[in-house]
Structure formats: C-alpha cells, structure tokens
C-alpha cells in the first residue's frame, strides 16, 4: 500500500551517516523520496547515499555540522540545488553524554545542546521558508525516552531532549496555519553502535532488555517506521505530538 508514498517529495535526514539516521534515510528513499543524507563525516554520508542509489533510490550526500549555521546554510543550498525545496525534515542528529553532573564540562554541555537543540533549531529555521511557500511540510524531530522521564546520568542529554519536545509543540502551533506538521519520535533502547558503546557491548544491553516490558530493545528500522508514519501523508491530521517507541519502558503523559 505504501510503495511510493513519498514519491515527488524531498526529504533531508540529519545525522544520517550511520545508525538510526541512515535507516530513516533508507526507508524514506524506499518510499520514493529523494533523500538528502546529511551528516558530519563526508565519507559516511557518501557511503549511505551510494547504497541508496545502488538499490534504485535517489540520494545526495551533504557533509556538515548541524550546530554550525554556515554548514546548515551550505548543506541546504546543496540540497535545493540538486533536488529543490525540502518537504520532509528529519532532525535526527544527536550526541550522547555520560557521567554525573560534576563531570559535565561547560564545553561538553555546549556541544550536547549545540547539536541536539541548536542543530534542530538551525536546520528547521532554514527549511521553514520553503515549506511555508509550498504550504506543506513535515518535520519529524527525534528526542529520547530520557527527555520524557529523565535518567540518573547525562543531565545535559536529558535536558536537550526535553528541549526538543518544547520545540516540537511550539512549532506545531506556530506553523500549523501553513499546513506544516511537526511531531517527534521518542525512542527507547535501540540496538545501535551508540547503544552498544554506552552499555559496554551486547551483554550489557541484554541485561537491560529484561527491564523493558517487551523484554527487548528495538532494531533501528522500527524507529524508522515511526518516522515514516509521521513524515508521510497518513499522519496529515497529527501535529504537536510525541510518539514514544520504547517497548513499554515509559508510559507517561496523556
């Protein structure tokens, strides 16, 4: 039913050089979107874009740091020159942090907020005019279960992801008159390189999986299905919402 549901759309996914972002890019391309694969590492994004093209999709790699305004401007110029205005933006780029409050340096705090929050802001601000002109747009932000309920480590990460919820809701209200829908996916535990590094490998994850009601962590593709639902025409009447995909680990606000 959904073959080609993104046909004719241009989607930009940030932090798409690996992990979940790469999965989002692949699934959107599979649905017919022309995908801009954005990420910090030029080689990684080129590799992901090449993979998409090899399997018959359309993709462009652009390299930049979302926390730097000049990189964001350059990446969007490149994207628009190749594909035209971006109709779907997935703000996936994010960095994690570890350690208690006393261990957080001002530098690392700024870096986490720079990528997770300012990066989402800068990308969206640059993309919105095109969406307004088209009177259509889909913005999907990626937060985290930790942004909903907190965690005993990584306060800067938790706070930045809570900030993403704030952006999601405010933008939904601000941009609704232009038919721009803004929603958010809040992943729980996902088997990614980042997750493996955080928990000291597969053994560490397997232990934590037992505390999740569904008794497992997700594959990255499962997050991509949530992103695709919120990026596609089937969610046209949904805006300002946070969709948690966490195996039941958190059932918070209603």
């Amino acid at each position: 039913m959904s073959e080609g549901r993104f046909a004719g759309r241009v989607a930009l996914v940030t932090g798409a050089g690996r992990g979940m972002g790469a999965c989002h890019a692949r699934l959107l391309a599979l649905g017919g979107a022309r995908v801009v694969v954005q990420g910090r590492d030029g080689e990684s994004v080129e590799q992901i874009a090449t993979g998409i093209r090899t399997s018959g999709g359309e993709a462009l790699a652009v390299a930049g740091d979302v926390s730097r305004e000049e990189d964001v401007a350059r990446n969007l110029d490149e994207a628009e020159a190749a594909f035209g205005p971006v109709g779907i933006l997935v703000n996936n780029a994010g960095v994690a942090s570890f350690g208690g409050t006393e261990a957080v340096t001002e530098e690392s705090f700024d870096r986490v907020f720079g990528v997770n929050l300012a990066g989402t802001f800068l990308m969206t601000r640059r993309v919105v005019p095109g969406m307004k002109a088209a009177r259509a747009g889909k913005i999907v932000n990626i937060s985290s279960r930790f942004g909903q309920v907190g965690a005993p480590v990584s306060i800067d990460y938790c706070a930045s992801k809570s900030g993403v919820h704030g952006l999601t809701k405010a933008w939904a209200k601000e941009l609704a008159p232009w038919n721009i829908c803004v929603n958010c996916v809040a992943p729980g535990g996902v088997w990614t390189e980042m997750g493996l590094a955080e928990h000291g490998g597969a053994e560490g994850i397997r232990k934590i999986e037992q505390s999740v009601p569904l008794k497992r962590w997700a594959q990255p593709e499962e997050m991509s299905h949530a992103v695709a639902f919120l990026a596609g025409p089937e969610s046209d009447f949904i805006t300002g919402q946070v969709l948690p995909a966490n195996g039941g680990a958190t059932m918070a606000g209603i």
């Binding site: 009601p213 569904l214 997700a218 805006t239 300002g240 919402q241 948690p244 995909a245 059932m251 209603i254």
Partner: peptide
C-alpha cells in the same frame, strides 16, 4: 516497539503530555 502509548489525531489540539 510501541506499547502503552497514545496518539492524538487532532490537528494540533491536545498538544499535552509527553
């Protein structure tokens, strides 16, 4: 991987809990 969750379909009304 989604369980115990609520999706409002409301055109921007009910932007409430997370």
């Amino acid at each position: 991987f989604v369980t115990g969750q609520v999706i409002p379909i409301a055109g921007g009304l009910a932007i409430v809990g997370i």
